[in-house]
């Protein structure tokens, strides 16, 4: 929001606003812009998901709406908005209605601290990483609310799996971000990316080249996929056993909110990974560009889509085993290791 405030300072004096009104207007503009970006990202990501999956299965995917089906997701979005608004008769009406808003709201408010390019974070929060970990818990609660409110046994199973999965994977997500944070000495996302500048080819200082952070990067990405319920960890909505899990009763606009939230979260996880581990906007040959940062995020998202159409789903006990017996111990070891690293190589 600071850059909006600064932009307003450059207006002619007669047009300048101050006080709470100016503050409210800049906040609303920042939120509106972020909302637009989230929707655009989700539209393009859904299209990419369909095209990539089609290619992997030797199909062509959507081809008819627009050039190579580029407008297909837009058409789908319009269709979802025009659909009848259904609430099942036995559902808990208030929980059923609030749940999609909570899920999308949780994914959306995380974007508040995310720099969209260098120096353009809506709110450049000093403890951005903690904020992101905090907001992700809203999504899990929204999913539980949806599962309970639908009054459907498959939804309920999906919700219970979400609760277990989220409680478990919250821990390795935080643990595996810590080594890079310890190296950078900051919890601010912009500062984290900036601390990785310089070195050979503007790449040598990336956190990922540290042996402990190298492991943590992959573990963080795995935990992130699990927290966003992506395949191979999409047990809460596994279609072969639970039909569609927690959102089986949802249709139309409410379903669209779940869909939007999934891609908003996927982008968030990819963006955090590229900011914290891959140097953000710092790139090879001394380049420093926001396009580079976006490219990294898109590559990470592509990897997530790639994994979805390559790997089969985990079993629930394998999922829990992976978290508690592998990711968490490794996270603790990595934190200890990076502590020794800083002690012996930095001081």
């Amino acid at each position: 929001m600071d850059f909006l405030m600064n932009a307003m300072q450059s207006l002619p004096a007669s047009m300048q606003l101050s006080g709470p009104l100016a503050w409210t207007i800049t906040a609303l503009v920042a939120a509106g812009v972020t909302m637009g970006v989230v929707s655009l990202v989700a539209l393009l990501a859904v299209y990419a998901e369909r095209k990539v999956s089609a290619d992997m299965q030797a199909r062509v995917g959507p081809m008819h709406v627009g050039w190579h089906g580029i407008l297909q997701t837009t058409a789908d979005a319009i269709k979802l908005m025009l659909k009848e608004d259904l609430v099942p008769a036995m559902a808990d009406k208030w929980l059923f209605i609030t749940a999609p808003l909570l899920v999308f709201g949780g994914a959306f408010i995380g974007w508040a601290v995310l720099p969209l390019c260098k120096g353009w974070a809506p709110v450049d929060l000093n403890i951005g990483v903690v904020y992101l970990l905090a907001t992700s818990s809203l999504v899990a609660l929204g999913i539980i609310m949806a599962g309970w409110g639908s009054h459907n046994k498959w939804s309920l199973y999906g919700a219970m799996r979400t609760a277990a999965q989220f409680l478990s994977y919250e821990i390795p997500t935080a643990l595996h971000l810590l080594p890079a944070i310890l190296l950078a000495g900051s919890l601010n996302l912009t500062a984290l990316a900036n601390s990785q500048a310089g070195g050979m080819g503007n790449m040598a200082n990336w956190a990922i080249w540290n042996p402990f952070c190298f492991l943590s990067f992959f573990c963080y990405f795995i935990s992130g996929l699990a927290e966003t319920n992506r395949v191979p960890f999409d047990l809460p909505e596994s279609e072969s056993e639970l039909v569609a899990g927690f959102h089986v009763e949802y249709s139309g606009m409410r379903f669209a909110f779940f869909f939007l939230a999934e891609y908003a979260e996927l982008f968030l996880v990819s963006a955090i990974a590229s900011l914290v581990f891959l140097g953000g906007w710092n790139g090879p040959f001394g380049l420093e560009s926001s396009f580079l940062y976006l490219a990294k995020v898109l590559v990470m998202m592509f990897v997530a889509i790639w994994l979805r159409w390559t790997l089969p789903r985990f079993r629930i006990d394998q999922l829990m085993g992976l978290c508690w017996k592998f990711l968490i111990p490794l996270g603790l070891i990595n934190i200890l290791g990076v502590g020794f690293w800083i002690y012996y190589f930095r001081t």
């Binding site: 929060l125 000093n126 403890i127 903690v130 904020y131 970990l133 905090a134 907001t135 992700s136 818990s137 809203l138 899990a140 609660l141 539980i144 309970w148 009054h151 309920l156 919700a159 219970m160 609760a163 277990a164 989220f166 409680l167 919250e170």
Partner: peptide, 28 residues
């Protein structure tokens, strides 16, 4: 700021999810 965010991480993300997880076993 830190206390506020810890409040969300611990109470919303941990305790409330656990509480609901327990309640769900009670049936509708």
């Amino acid at each position: 700021d830190f206390v506020g965010l810890s409040q969300v991480v611990i109470y919303v993300g941990g305790i409330l999810v656990l509480l609901l997880f327990g309640v769900m076993f009670t049936g509708h």
